[in-house]
Amino acid sequence: MKQRGQVTLIIILGILALFVVLFLFYARDQIIEKVTKTTNVQQQLKLELTQIEKDISVCINKETTGILKTLAQNGGTLPYKGNKITILCQNIPETNNCLATPLLAPSIEKEVQPILQEKVRQCIDLSPFQGKNYEISSGDLTLTFIIHPRNVLVSADYPLTLKQGEYTVQTKTITKEIDVPFGRLLTATNEILSQRSTTGNFDPLPFVLIHLNEFNLEEKKPYPNEIYSLSLRTQEDYTFWFAVTAQGRFNS
């Protein structure tokens, strides 16, 4: 009896195993298709998302460099060679000294952030990604703009979701490093302003030598004012301009 029972059990287990094998064989295509589809859909969505992130990155780069160039070159009121230069030190009458307006990174960051955010928002064009075989939904763009000595960091938090059926991919925070030494130029500018505002004069030559030729610094004097252009020796394509008003014997 014991033996018969064991045989029966083995037969039952054998039949069950056979069913399992047959079922797996039968469902093989569906399982493989399911796995493959998951991989394909997710891969496609990820590729699309990567392209969108790339486009956002391009927008950040374009708008940030544009806004920084405007700040550096023609963000002010003093006309010079087709540009409007920012006056950072206004002459104190009857003296050679001037009243300075410091350029500090936090206040510039605060001023630039909303403008840049709006510009980047307008630049991002999702229309090429719409009307495809997935749904695209986006939230509000939030941008942070931080000035460092050797670069500018822009982080875009743009909640974006691509959805196809049950598959979903989402954007992460996109951080772009803009290779513009804005912080260094600001520090140097404030150093120049400190000297110019208190002593009533400033000589670019000792400044350049003291800083071991780190900067290119030129001074022009459209009567009676002074215009300075400052760039890094190793990165001449980005020049920061500012003006100092001075007193003169004549109106010009």
Partner: peptide
């Protein structure tokens, strides 16, 4: 502030 500096002749 983050600047940790003193600047002369500022309004």
């Amino acid at each position: 502030t983050e600047e940790h500096t003193c600047l002369p002749n500022i309004g």
